[in-house]
Design a protein around this nucleic acid. Structure first.
Lengths: 336, 336
DNA sequence: TTGAAAGCGTTACCAT
DNA sequence: ATGGTAACGCTTTCAA
């Protein structure tokens, strides 16, 4: 059964394709009666417009892309939910691309976008993304990009972020108030502004408390095994921490495992908190103190802004940073 | 900067568009020298083919759709990973659609596919999907559908599932061996074959152990709050269970909360296990016994089969059921 | 080996 | 209010 086309409807009703097309678009040039006729025929014949013909002709696709480092992370999963909700309600389709934290992969993905496949892009950059030429190139070809969470601050477009510096500062201060003296910060490399902000918040808090000598920023490994080694070595050094801030959700499992294996009691010997959205944190053993990002809302906000740019009710590259607050949820991993 | 077209390359090289098009497609009709010329020019000019023009002309889009109930579930997130890997490596693009467990929404999504937007569909049906006409209609329009996890068995196409019946049976037997006498099964409505299989496995195990009188299948609510009520009422009835099998990842948090609130000790007073992929189960309190589906592999397998159908190396609607085994991981929530 | 031209299904301009 | 037709950028057939 081949798809119904405008031409087939036109033939059936002895109308021109132009008239049918305009009727379907609910143009005011067309009489009420004709419109009704066309709409009914279209319904009866199961007509659905060919999006490729339409996109080709109109020069836009009603499609946006989400480019993410990964998906098995509760933050990104929730963010996609928010994005999808907005996209759907505006009749947009969503293509998803995973960079898997690889710059070459991200570059290849962006290269494809020069084709005009998507009208706009929502993006959280990969861990390796220090060079941003591939992103700039796409923006130069007039395709708006809105960053969320992992942003490129120097790229002159809208960024939707959370208050990483403040959260990190507040979290560190909290650990200090719980009498931690040697607090380590474990995260990804500081390529990304998000990580720099978190590290800076941590460092500032240490300074405020005269603990700058104890500063200890640890970069985790490429995989769970490497991270396990790195973290477990932490406890064998003379820098042995009594508090840890994790900047990566996945490290939580690793750290809990290290502690189990080395018989380190949380929170007695070590206080732990994690940047994560993960809603079962409350049922972990011990329950995990978290800095919870407004993931759904960040996705929703970023998508709303992108669509606003696409509808030209907002300047193409209006640079702007929107900060949605995270929430620190205190649980047992930080209180004895 | 408008996108480069074949025509622009043709003009620059004083060649015809036909020649350029064939060169880019690496056709044997074209001489080595010309090809090289074209390829270099294309590279220099930053040419990327317009996918909409190409799709319109060729009648296929090199795009597939994933239709899912939700994304904030570790199973689906992992499955998407598997799908994306296969799609990418074959040059396919992935559109994502969330039904949010709503049949009307799923119907609207499927309706759109009649447009030819995608070449094929990977699908896990919504909770409400008892009527499957909308899916049949798409299949009738020659767009292959491959189901994974939440399948429609009577729809005459390939399904990728896990051994739900066996896992459920084995899990139930295990609880019996741990001296549970009143085992409840809490899940979604039995619309879906996946849920029926799990329930049937549970019932069979009860029968094998002469416990059929204690059969107790509970349908959870639409949201966390409703589920909380339903589950907490369970413990106030005379059917008060000493073992629970959860068929839905999200219910784990709810059940743990109920137990905390009602001061029910897991595993002493109640043994619990959950169908989930969730990799932090080992760090929950108590650590959670899980039936872990091969999510990544299921996604990968389903995608591979779909692409095989698309490349016509496999019959369009070759019905087949591929069963990948789940793994039961025994932890403290089921052993005192 | 290369090129001209038709056509994919739609939209939009210009007539009528 | 309706219709003819060109054009979007590409692929493919056929001719040179």
């Amino acid at each position: 059964m081949p798809a119904t086309t405008i031409k087939m409807i036109a033939n059936k009703l002895s109308l021109s394709v132009a008239t049918v097309s305009k009727s379907l678009a609910d143009s005011h040039e067309i009489s009420k009666e004709t419109k009704l006729l066309v709409l009914n025929a279209a319904r009866d014949m199961g007509y659905v417009a060919n999006p490729y013909a339409s996109s080709l002709r109109k020069g836009r696709s009603k499609t946006i892309a989400i480019v993410l480092p990964e998906i098995a992370d509760s933050f990104f999963a929730e963010a996609i939910n928010g994005i999808e909700e907005v996209a759907l309600s505006h009749g947009y389709h969503v293509l998803i691309y995973l960079s898997h934290e690889s710059l070459p992969r991200e570059q290849a993905i962006m290269q494809d976008f020069k084709s005009g496949r998507v009208d706009g892009i929502l993006m959280s950059v990969s861990e390796e993304t220090s060079n941003v030429e591939h992103i700039k190139a796409v923006m130069d070809s007039k395709i708006p990009v809105v960053f969320f969470d992992r942003v490129c601050e120097d790229l002159n477009t809208t960024c939707v972020v959370t208050d990483d510096f403040d959260s990190s500062l507040q979290a560190t201060n909290y650990l200090v108030s719980k009498s931690c003296k040697k607090i380590a910060f474990v995260g990804n490399s500081v390529n990304l502004s998000i990580n720099r902000n978190r590290v800076n918040g941590y460092v500032s808090a240490l300074q405020q408390n005269g603990l700058q000598q104890q500063q200890n920023v640890v970069i985790c490994g490429k995989n769970q095994e490497e991270s396990y080694e790195i973290i477990s070595n932490l406890f064998k050094s003379d820098q042995k921490p009594d508090g840890i801030i994790l900047s990566v959700e996945k490290l939580t499992a690793v750290l809990y495992k290290v502690c189990a294996d080395l018989h380190i009691n949380i929170p007695d010997q070590l206080k732990v908190l994690t940047f994560t959205n993960f809603n079962m944190a409350q049922f972990m053993s011990p329950s995990l103190t978290t800095i919870k990002q407004p993931a759904f809302n960040m996705g929703k906000t970023a998508a709303t802004i992108l669509l606003k740019k696409l509808s030209h009710t907002m300047a193409f590259s209006e640079p702007d940073t929107i900060i949605l607050p995270s929430e620190i949820i205190f649980r047992n991993s930080t209180s004895e």
